[in-house]
Computed example of a mutant assay.
Amino acid sequence: MSASARAIVIDRPGEHRLVSGPQAEPGPGEARVTVHTAGVSRSDRELYDGTRPPALVRYPVIPGHEWSGTVDAVGEGAPPELLGRKVVAEGFRACLVCDRCREGAGNLCTRGYEETGFTRPGAFGDSLLVPARLLHVLADCADLRAAALLAPAAVSAAAVLAGVPRPGDRIAVVGAGTLGLLALQLLAACSPAELVAIDPRVQRCERALRMGATQAGPPGENSVSYGRFDLVVEAAGAFSAAQEACLLVRRGGRVVLTGMFGPGAEGIDPEHLVEGQLTVRAVFGAPPSAWSHAVRAWEAGFLDPVPLITHELPLTAFGEAMALVGSEDPAVGKVLLTP
Rank of each mutant, 00 (worst) to 15 (best):
M1H: 12
M1T: 10
S2R: 13
S2I: 08
A3S: 07
S4T: 14
R6L: 03
I8G: 03
V19R: 11
S20P: 00
G21T: 05
P22K: 12
A24D: 14
E25D: 02
P26V: 10
E30W: 08
T37N: 03
A38D: 04
G39M: 01
S41M: 12
R42G: 10
Y48L: 04
D49W: 02
T51L: 13
A55I: 15
S68M: 10
T70D: 05
V71E: 07
D72S: 05
G75Q: 10
E76F: 01
G77Y: 04
P80G: 09
L83C: 10
R85P: 05
A89I: 12
A89C: 11
C95I: 13
C98K: 15
G106K: 14
N107Q: 15
L108M: 12
Y113I: 11
E115H: 04
G122Y: 04
F124W: 02
F124Q: 01
F124M: 08
D126A: 15
P131C: 11
A132Y: 14
L134C: 03
V137E: 09
V137Y: 04
L138Q: 00
A139M: 14
C141I: 09
A142Y: 04
D143E: 11
P152H: 06
S156G: 12
A157L: 11
L161D: 15
A162L: 08
G163I: 03
P167K: 15
I171R: 00
G177A: 07
Q185E: 09
E194K: 00
V196A: 06
P200W: 05
P200G: 05
P200L: 10
R204N: 08
C205N: 13
E206I: 06
E206M: 07
R207P: 03
A208L: 03
R210K: 10
A213N: 11
G220M: 08
G227P: 00
R228P: 01
D230M: 05
D230N: 01
A238K: 08
A242Y: 04
A242G: 15
C246K: 10
L248P: 02
V249Q: 05
V249T: 06
T258H: 00
V274Q: 07
E275M: 05
Q277E: 09
L278R: 07
L278G: 01
F284S: 14
G285F: 06
A290E: 14
W291L: 13
S292E: 15
R296A: 09
W298V: 04
L308R: 04
T310R: 06
E312A: 14
L315F: 06
A317L: 04
F318R: 00
F318I: 00
G319C: 00
E320C: 03
E320P: 03
A321C: 05
A321S: 06
A323L: 01
L324P: 03
P330G: 07
G333V: 01
G333H: 04
K334N: 12
K334V: 08
